[in-house]
Design a protein around this nucleic acid. Structure first.
Lengths: 193, 193, 193, 193
DNA sequence: TATGAATGAGTTTTCATTCAT
DNA sequence: AATGAATGAAAACTCATTCAT
């Protein structure tokens, strides 16, 4: 087994542990046990717990990014925007357990610049797509000229993030994705001329 | 000093520590030092670290709730809704440091039923106000009859929560409150007939 | 309530706690709670945990001693000996829970001279009765002249103590009092000419 | 040094500590110091203080059992019984310090099923030997047919246990092994036809 | 590469006792 | 006599990391 495969094996085990116990309660020993390797074995591939955590988070964000299908760039900006959000809803729903884990990583972010940076990349990439489509809608006269594309993009992103978080913290309080979808459609309606 | 005041004194000290160090890096010893009492003194009032954390969170949510001024019930539903959201923005801004702390507690919530329950109460109370106003707007013919008050209320709540979270995790990425305000106004515009 | 009654009230509560939790797991707080008084209240009457324990043990031994009915000094030495042992069996059976507690105190004895001394008094008092009766049997020609009264007395005492202990440590292994009784009768048979 | 040897090294150190300080006053730190290892090292082999105590007790009972030499099965049942008891006396005398420690463990037994079970095994093994010999004596017509082998076996066991206990609790009150021996011989005399 | 015994500073918690009121 | 808040040394145990093999 190659070194890269070993790393992935360790990350996979650690991910399962984190999903089950949460980041606060997960110990290096748990990760080691789940890896199927020994202490020294794991430390050979990840020189510290923090490095392993970054490895897990990176993998998580990659999965998230890869899950987003390419949206066909045909149709009006509004239609493409709706498709993009629907795609996002699917990703959130299908990666529910991973997203719960992402919330755990949030707690690390303020104290770990590297984690914060990883999150930022993920945010910016999605934001760029959203604001791009909104700008396109304005240019094509579909959305009001007074619309601030960046603000609305960040609002949409916050809407979905906030809803995902609420689901984690207080299960069964929101109904996903219908609540998010309904609100997003209302935002789009508000933007239309 | 009464027992109740002592509890508050301990909670206040712990809150400062938590804001500064985060919940993951805060040690019981930090809380004890900040309390001005001895180890046994603190444990006399809170029988474990977890109980103290719950005490802090409860106080936090109480502060949050109390910070929401009573909104005058004059004017149209739309006007009242805007006032309510502006008030919420003010609270988020003024309690920025507390909200960062709240994010820390979010992570605890999925593994601590008592914490989850506390959050739920806070959510429901704000949601009720929002959906009440939206319903009123529908009844008065200001908002579209097709609007789903609960869904939009939950969407608005998620919008603000998500934006608050983003600010904590990736500072300087969103501009608060303008982004939230702009998005909220667009939602309201989308609801209007 | 007089000071003496208060002391007894505290001792009674502590005795219940000790029976339930054992001496190793019983805390001063448990005694205080069981006493119905406050911390300071209990400490007013017993200046330390050790003093309270000695108070409990003393009371226990007094109960034990008082439980032994006076044996009528009529009949042969053998008959009186049998009556005395039957009486002892009854005491052991009726004070089973107290005796379990006594075992707990045994472990304290080697490290607490005052406790050791209390036990010694109890031992000596019962031993004196036993060896007195055996000596009487020898003098009256009922027991063999070669009998060593002190040795047999200590043997009988050890027999009952050992059986009591076994019952505490490994319940249901011995059948009391029949096993003890049977063995004691065999000892008496062995002493008879 | 193998893992098994390390365990034994830790047990040996802990045994010395327990003999010197008693089970109530012995701290985990004492065991750690006596082991020559570090805290983590000891906890690597015994996951709690209780588990270590069980390790010590198990070893103690094994020593006790192994110390009993095989009794030649020639001679009458009475002769073999006497040899067995003499052997037991020797073991008790030579392992005096270990037996004091056993008394300490008695106190743990009522609240620790695992400890209780260990004692039970030791009891049953010795009882089986005793009652077997007594039965043999009955069969061979040496002992009275009315003798109850189990009861007398348990009585003999209790006699020695009780005497051992008395020695620990009130030193110098009994004279061992002569008191036990004298009583045991009287029991045997009482069983003989 | 991999093993797993070992480290030890750090963590939460306990608990007999004191003392101002 | 009584209260109960407060003390603080000491207890058991944790856990990321190291290192000889």
């Amino acid at each position: 087994m190659s070194s890269e495969e070993r790393r992935q094996q360790i990350i996979d085990g650690a991910t399962e542990v984190l999903i089950e116990k949460g980041i606060v309660a997960s110990r290096m020993n748990d990760f080691i046990e789940a890896s199927g390797l020994s202490k020294g074995g794991v430390y050979h591939h990840f020189s510290s717990k923090e490095e392993l955590m970054i490895g897990v988070l990176t993998h998580l964000l990659v999965i998230n990014a890869e899950s987003m299908q390419a949206i066909p760039d045909t149709g009006s900006a509004r239609e493409q925007l709706i498709l993009l959000l629907q795609e996002y809803e699917k990703v959130i729903a299908s990666l529910a357990q991973y997203n719960r884990l992402l919330l755990d990583f949030f707690v690390l972010a303020p104290h770990t610049p590297e984690v914060s940076e990883l999150f930022k990349q993920g945010y910016l990439s999605f934001l760029a797509k959203l604001s791009g489509l909104i700008q396109q809608g304005i240019d094509e006269g579909e959305f009001k000229a007074s619309t601030n594309p960046e603000a609305i993009a960040r609002g949409l992103q916050a809407l979905y993030d906030g809803m995902g978080m609420t689901m984690m913290v207080v299960p069964n309080l929101v109904s996903f994705p219908s609540d998010a979808s309904e609100t997003a459609m209302t935002i789009i309606a508000g933007m239309c001329r």
